[in-house]
Amino acid sequence: MNRFTRGRSWLFAAALLVSAARSAAAQLAIPGAGEDRFGLLLAGQTISVTTGDARLAFNWTNDPHLTADDSCRQFQRGTPQYRDCLFRSVDTSQTFIDLTAGISGQKGERSLFANGTITPGYDLGVAVTRRLESASAHHGGYTDVYAGVIATSRPLTFATITPSGSATVADASERTVGLTTGVNFFLRENFAVGIGGGVKRAWSTPGLQKAMNVCTSTASGTTAAGQIVQVSTCDDGYTGPLADQWIDSVRLDVLKNFTRTKMDPASGDIVAVATVGVIGSVNVNHRTGTAAVYNLAVGPTLHPKGVPHKVLLAAVFGFADVSDAANQGKTLRDKFGVQLYFGVPLTGF
C-alpha cells in the first residue's frame, strides 16, 4: 500500500560549498532562492548556488594574461603623461572562462548521502565572461557580460497512482540543459547590480511540486486495542507522471560591501578592519503551463580583514515561490529557509 504524507520542505538547511580556482582564492557561492545558479561574479569566478538541496561544487577559472601592452618609459616618471600611461595599463578588457562542476543530492532531499549511500546528481557548466574596465581617472569598477551553458541531472523518486487505484513507485532523473546570459554592473569595486536571464529545457521534471514522503507499507497489523499499525519505508519523492517543460527565468542581483579602514595611531599607517556586506536577489521563473514563480533572497556576508573580495561566511535568507504559483497551500515555513555558506581558504589567504 502506498500513501503520501507531506514532507518537510524549506527547513533551515545548511550547505557547504567549496570552490577552488587556479589563481584566485577559494570563492563562496552566494545563493538566490529557487535558482540553480546566481548571476553575480566575484573574483572572476562563477558563483554557483544550492537552493535547499545539498550540493558540493568546484569552480575553475582560467588565468588570463592580464598584463597590458603599454610601456611607459617614453614618458618622464612622475609626469601626468606617465601617470596616464600607468592607469591605461589596468583599463584593458579581459575575457574569462569559467568551468563549474558539482555533485548534488537527490532532488527534494537535503543530504548528499541517504541511508548510507550517495545519491549522485551532477551539474556541469561553462561560461564566458567579457570584462570591460572602467576608464574613470579616480574610480574602479567594471562591467561583466557573460553567457554560458548549464546541464544538470538529479535523481528523484516518484509514485504514480491511477484512478483505478493501482500504483507504481519508480526512480527517474530530472535532466535540464539551458543557456544563461546576463550583465553585471560593478558600478564601484564594492557595489554591483546584475541582471540576467536564461532558458532551459527540462525532462522528467516534477515541476513546481513540493517534495513529499513516498512510503511503501511492508507490514501491517492490528493491536489488541484495535489500532492499526503499519510499518513503512519512506523516501522523499513526487507524484507522477513527470513532465517535459521549458523553463525561462529573469533575475536581478545586488551586492554591496561595506569596507572600512582606519589610522593606526601607533604607526600612522592605514590599516584594514573587518568587512561586511549584503547580497540580494530577486528572480522570476516560468515553466510551461504554470504561473510564474517569484523568489527572493537576501543576507549578510563576512569578508576577511583587508580582503573584501573574498567571503568567509554568508547567511542567506530565502523566500521561494513567494506567490505559491501552483496554489499548493504553501505556508511561510514552506517558503522560508536560511542557508549558511562557508568560504574555505584554499589559496590566497
Binding site: S23, A24, A25, A43, G44, T61, D63, P64, H65, L66, T67, A68, D70, S71, C72, R73, Q74, F75, R77, Y82, L86, S89, V90, E133, G140, E189, G306, V307, H309, T347, G348
Partner: peptide, 24 residues
C-alpha cells in the same frame, strides 16, 4: 603582487609581464 583586483608593476617605466588575477 597580492591583493588588489588588478595591478601592474613598472620598473623604470618598463612593464613587467605578470599573470593571475588577485595574486599576480
Amino acid at each position: 603582487v597580492d591583493g588588489p583586483r588588478r595591478s601592474e608593476v613598472f620598473v623604470d617605466g618598463q612593464l613587467i609581464p605578470m599573470t593571475g588575477t588577485f595574486k599576480r
